[in-house]
């Protein structure tokens, strides 16, 4: 797939700040998403996955959140600088968003049908009847039985997995070009998780949209993604096609993540592996490699300068000094 990028993010920086403290949650993140591509975003809790994606649509509460710099190009517009009215046109219509927590992301006092019809009526100008018909179709599309009847139910009458499907249906309502799904399956049990994965894979081909799939599970990503972006400490530390990443993980953090995966025959290596040490605090913009304190291959340079993304192969980049020419990463450090 070598089509044009639909979404291009350049040098995005997001800070949570009051007078007394600051959290540099997103530090200079750049990536692009091609038409129809499925980009997996992985990284441990607190690595800035959600904050990055919410920054794209300016969905973070401000204050305290502030986008310090960066560009988010979508359909020729920079979403960071777009006026509110045009941004609303992008939200829900151009880009659909599925949030992390299905239990709280729906409004408890409105019916599912009402919430599903809202974007249809706002963006596409559907009348009541047409919106209702389309809403029922959408519920059917995400695999909810007797969709017509369930439109009049309230969120609390749905199970967690069903609510997540409803969230996906809402995000898909206006046939967006991009779907951003923020850990849409973590709250769910394994079977439902698999169903939703299949559903998105399927819909993606049917509707031809690009998908950003956030998770902290590399195993999930392996199954569905075209490309993977690994985040650590608010930065992209590695980005590669899915096969390249699994064959040749370059950043020590990616390798450590891989090591925490169960091996192919299903048994875990030794015990459950975890990465020793704590994630960085992010109270200042990074002056050194954020992974240095936990890295097995750390050397002086890592503590003095933060490595940029360095291309190790076409379409494969890692933010690690070991990947720099002359540092000898290919020799298997």
């Amino acid at each position: 797939m070598n089509s044009a990028p639909v979404l291009e993010v350049q040098g995005l920086k997001t800070v949570f700040g009051t007078r007394d403290f600051a959290v540099h949650a997103v530090n200079d993140v750049s990536f692009s998403l091609r038409e129809g591509e499925l980009l997996g975003v992985v990284g441990e809790s607190g690595s800035g996955k959600s904050v990055t994606m919410m920054s794209l649509l300016r969905l973070l509460p401000s204050p305290p959140a502030r986008i310090e710099s960066g560009r988010v190009m979508f359909e020729g517009q920079d979403l960071v600088r777009l006026d509110d009215a045009s941004l609303r046109e992008v939200r829900g219509r151009g880009i659909g968003f599925v949030f992390q927590d299905p239990m709280t992301s729906l409004n408890p006092v409105f019916t599912v049908g009402f919430q599903l019809m809202e974007p249809l009526r706002t963006h596409l100008g559907f009348d009541r009847k047409a919106a209702r018909r389309r809403a029922a179709e959408l519920l059917a599309l995400v695999g909810i039985p007797s969709p017509e009847a369930r439109l009049d139910d309230y969120p609390h009458q749905f199970s967690g997995g069903m609510r997540q499907r409803v969230m996906i249906a809402i995000a898909l309502a206006c046939n967006p070009k991009v779907l951003i799904a923020d850990e849409p399956t973590t709250a769910l049990d394994v079977t439902i998780q698999a169903q939703i994965l299949e559903l998105v894979k399927d819909l993606r081909h049917k509707l031809g949209m690009a998908v950003v799939w956030i998770t902290h599970d590399l195993g999930v990503v392996a199954g569905i993604a075209d490309r993977v972006m690994v985040m650590y400490g608010g930065q992209v530390v590695e980005s590669a096609g899915v096969d390249a990443l699994y064959e040749n993980p370059t950043h020590p953090y990616t390798r450590a993540l891989m090591a925490t995966l169960p091996s192919l025959d299903g048994t875990r290596r030794d015990r459950l592996m975890t990465i020793a040490g704590q994630p960085p605090l992010l109270t200042a913009p990074p002056a050194a490699c954020p992974f240095a304190p936990r890295c097995a291959h750390v050397h002086d340079r890592c503590r003095m300068a933060n490595p940029p993304l360095i291309e190790v192969a076409p379409g494969h980049a890692a933010a690690c000094w070991l990947a720099a020419p002359g540092e000898g990463v290919q020799n298997g450090v």
Partner: peptide, 26 residues
């Protein structure tokens, strides 16, 4: 501060609708 408010905004609803329909009703 509830999550559903963010959902409403992410749907591209006007701020007036977000506050006077979704938040106020609750």
């Amino acid at each position: 501060n509830q999550d559903y408010v963010r959902t409403a905004r992410a749907k591209g609803l006007r701020e007036r609708v977000v506050v006077l329909v979704h938040v106020l009703r609750n």
